[in-house]
């Protein structure tokens, strides 16, 4: 199994690692048992623009690289645009992932959406989207 250069770049040099104090939306997804836990923090301004995005991830190289890439792809964009982010867009931006690792990118999409849902909850907006689950329920 081999990772692309882009994946290795984001793995060795992850962008936006960390926490955001008083984040407007936080999403934690995954399951320590089956592998991975991803935690996304979003800072969102009054125009619904994601001004900052940080992550923490417990997982494999692909999980770390997809989290990093996902933060880059949503930062500076509106919440709506973030919701349109698909895992395949993340995979594409990373120049591909080995087939067994695609589920890790689903987690990144899920983490962003969960963080947005948290934001919607906080501001009392109705959640009008669905979150695809990376892992089957146990």
């Amino acid at each position: 199994m081999k990772y692309s250069e882009k994946v290795m770049d984001h793995f060795t040099n992850p962008r936006n690692v960390g926490e955001i104090e008083n984040a407007d939306g936080v999403g934690v997804v995954g399951n320590a048992k089956c592998g991975d836990i991803m935690k996304m923090y979003l800072k969102i301004d009054e125009n619904d623009v994601i001004t900052d995005c940080k992550f923490k991830t417990f997982g494999c190289g692909a999980a770390i690289a997809t989290s990093s890439m996902a933060t880059e792809l949503v930062k500076g964009h509106t919440v709506k645009e973030a919701l349109a982010l698909t895992n395949s867009a993340v995979v594409e931006a990373l120049e591909g992932l080995p087939p067994v690792k695609v589920h890790c990118s689903v987690l990144a999409e899920e983490a962003i959406k969960t963080a947005v849902a948290d934001y919607y909850n906080k501001i009392g907006r109705e959640i009008d989207f669905e979150i695809e689950k990376a892992h089957d329920e146990e």
């Binding site: 836990i37 992550f55 991830t57 770390i64």
Partner: peptide, 8 residues
């Protein structure tokens, strides 16, 4: 560990 939510 520093980037692990579990370690946090």
């Amino acid at each position: 560990r520093n980037m692990s939510p579990l370690w946090e």
